[in-house]
C-alpha cells in the first residue's frame, strides 16, 4: 500500500479502528509514522479551541436581541428575501437551485433548437440576365498630339507654394519664381 493512500485512510479511520493493512504499513514506515504524529498534534492543538467561551452575558444578550428583532418583524414584516442573491444562497435549498439551473439550461437549449436553419436564398425573379455572347470592347479613346503636349494652363511644381518653385508653362519652358514678397 502506498504512503499517500495510507495517509488518506488515517483520516478516514481517525474515529474508529484502523484496518490491519494500514496498521502494518504504519508500523514499518517511519515517514508515515512522522506524518501521523504531526497530524495528531494539529488535531489536538485545534481541539484546544473548544475551551474558548463567548463574552459573559452573551447568551442572554443575544437571545433578547433576537427576540426583539423577531417582534419588530412581526409588527413590520421585513422583506422575506432581502435580495435575490441572498435568497438563492443563504438557505439550504439545493433542490431549488438545481431546479432553477435546469430550467435555465432547458431555455438555452430551446432557444438554439427554435432558431431557423440557414438555407440558400431562392430568388423569385431573375436578378440579371446573362448575355449569351460578350459585348464587343469599345474603341480606345484618342487625343490629338498638340493638346497633349501643350496644356492650356500652367502647372505648379515644387514641394510647397511657400518657397521657391518653378512654374511650368509647357513641357519645355520653365522660369524660376519666388513667392516670398
Amino acid at each position: 500500500m502506498k504512503c499517500e493512500r495510507v495517509r488518506e485512510l488515517l483520516v478516514e479511520f481517525e474515529d474508529s479502528t484502523l484496518p490491519a493493512d494500514v496498521s502494518e504499513h504504519l508500523a514499518r514506515c517511519s515517514s508515515c509514522q512522522q506524518h501521523s504524529r504531526q497530524m495528531e498534534v494539529v488535531r489536538r492543538l485545534m481541539s484546544l479551541k473548544k475551551y474558548e467561551r463567548p463574552d459573559p452575558g452573551f447568551e442572554e444578550r443575544s437571545a433578547v436581541t433576537i427576540r426583539r428583532r423577531l417582534e419588530d418583524m412581526a409588527r413590520k414584516p421585513e422583506p422575506l428575501f432581502g435580495s435575490l442573491w441572498e435568497f438563492l444562497t443563504d438557505y439550504p435549498r439545493p433542490a431549488f437551485r438545481y431546479a432553477l439551473a435546469g430550467v435555465v439550461a432547458v431555455l438555452i437549449v430551446l432557444n438554439f433548437v427554435s432558431m431557423p436553419l440557414l438555407e440558400p436564398v431562392r430568388p423569385v425573379a431573375p436578378i440579371a440576365r446573362i448575355a449569351p455572347t460578350p459585348a464587343p470592347a469599345p474603341e480606345p479613346a484618342t487625343m490629338p498630339l498638340e493638346v497633349y503636349r501643350q496644356p492650356a494652363y500652367a502647372a505648379f511644381q515644387g514641394p510647397s507654394n511657400r518657397g521657391p518653385a518653378r512654374v511650368e508653362y509647357g513641357p519645355r519652358e520653365s522660369v524660376p519664381v519666388n513667392f516670398e514678397y
Binding site: 479551541k49 474558548e52 452573551f58 447568551e59 443575544s62 437571545a63 433576537i66
Partner: peptide
C-alpha cells in the same frame, strides 16, 4: 410562537457562536 423559538435559540446559539467565531 416566539417563546418556542426562544427556547431553540437558547439551546443552539452557543454552538452556532462557536462555529461562526472560529
Amino acid at each position: 410562537d416566539l417563546g418556542a423559538y426562544d427556547q431553540l435559540v437558547r439551546r443552539y446559539q452557543t454552538r452556532i457562536y462557536g462555529l461562526v467565531y472560529n
